[in-house]
């Protein structure tokens, strides 16, 4: 079980990294989403894996899973939606403004001075 979760984290990270290294905005955004999943699962798993023991207090239950990583990851999921939306908007704005969805400046369309500013 641990092996499966750890390998899922690894695979999502690898896929996310590969996509983030692409040259167009859309795959980069997808890559970031994958990395978000990986990071969230990673953080969640830091509470160790427990089956069938949700952190809902019941009278006859004594063992619960660690609730703190869950609380942290819950807000992280919502915030990451906000951040994804911002990045998508920036990417969209750049595309609509220049009709080009490259994440990097293209050498033929930019002068050396404007490097790093767009």
């Amino acid at each position: 079980m641990e092996l499966l979760v750890a390998s899922a984290i690894g695979i999502m990270t690898a896929a996310g990294l590969y996509l983030v290294l692409r040259l167009r905005t859309f795959p980069v955004i997808l890559g970031m989403s994958l990395l978000t999943y990986a990071v969230n699962v990673f953080l969640f798993a830091s509470g160790r894996l427990t089956i069938g023991a949700p952190p809902i207090l019941r009278d006859d239950v004594t063992a619960y899973t660690d609730p703190l990583p869950q609380a942290l990851v819950l807000t992280a999921i919502v915030i990451s939606f906000g951040m994804t939306a911002v990045v998508v908007m920036i990417g969209l704005g750049a595309f609509l403004g220049s009709n080009d969805d490259h994440v990097d400046d293209q050498p033929d369309t930019s002068t050396p001075k404007s490097e790093g500013q767009t």
Binding site: E2, L3, V5, A6, S7, I9, G10, I11, T13, A14, A15, G16, L17, Y18, L21, A38, F42, A45, S46, R48, L49
Partner: peptide, 19 residues
């Protein structure tokens, strides 16, 4: 791909280690 696989292996190893 190399960078990605290295990163994936790293997170896998770390996660598996502490799990």
């Amino acid at each position: 791909t190399g960078v990605a696989i290295a990163g994936g292996l790293a997170t896998f190893a770390l996660a598996y280690h502490y799990l």
